[in-house]
């Protein structure tokens, strides 16, 4: 098996963290390239099933990045997102995945440096956890077929 390169998704609110990611880029701040950003109109749009399906499809980690608490453009979207993140973390802990593969962050559009820092934190966290048990299980299940083919 090659070096583990985590697949990390970031659900970013268009009003804050998406702009912050943009800023981080403009400022030429370094953060891991494995983080794939999905722009959402508000983190309140991210539902439990989006997070779970992402894990089903092989994500090793997911971050949800919304506005600072109290600053949501839709008043409580980021608070709802935090609740959902907490619920999914609880589910993950109960089904053999680590809840820590998921995290919620809050930041504003001007916090480009914070975005980069957050992305590095998440990368380090997932690197420490290793590949998602889903990916490990799939690989293990697939291996005999590969051997037969060889």
């Amino acid at each position: 098996m090659g070096r583990f390169e985590p697949k990390i998704l970031a659900f970013c609110c268009s009003y804050c963290s998406y702009a912050a990611a943009d800023l981080a880029g403009a400022m030429r701040l370094q953060y891991p390239g494995n983080i794939k950003i999905i722009k959402v109109p508000c983190t309140g749009k991210v539902d439990l099933i989006h997070l779970l399906l992402a894990f089903e499809q092989g994500a090793d980690g997911i971050m949800v990045a919304g506005c600072l608490e109290g600053n949501c453009h839709f008043l409580s979207g980021n608070l709802r997102a935090r609740q959902r993140v907490n619920r999914v973390m609880a589910i993950l802990d109960r089904i053999g995945l680590e809840g820590d593969r998921l995290a919620m962050f809050n930041l504003s559009a001007g916090m480009g440096a914070r975005f980069a820092e957050m992305a590095r934190e998440m990368y380090a966290q997932v690197l420490k956890l290793g590949p998602s048990p889903i990916n490990i299980a799939r690989e293990t299940a697939a291996r005999p077929i590969v051997e037969v083919a060889a």
Binding site: D47, L48, I49, L52, L53, F55, E56, I91, L92, R94, I95, G96, L97, P133, I134, I136, A137, R138, T140, A141
Partner: peptide, 19 residues
């Protein structure tokens, strides 16, 4: 339906990681 989907996904994740 939402809870159905969440349960379905959770069960799939569980049984997948359990092989």
């Amino acid at each position: 339906l939402k809870e159905v989907q969440v349960l379905g996904s959770s069960l799939r994740l569980y049984f997948t990681q359990a092989g």
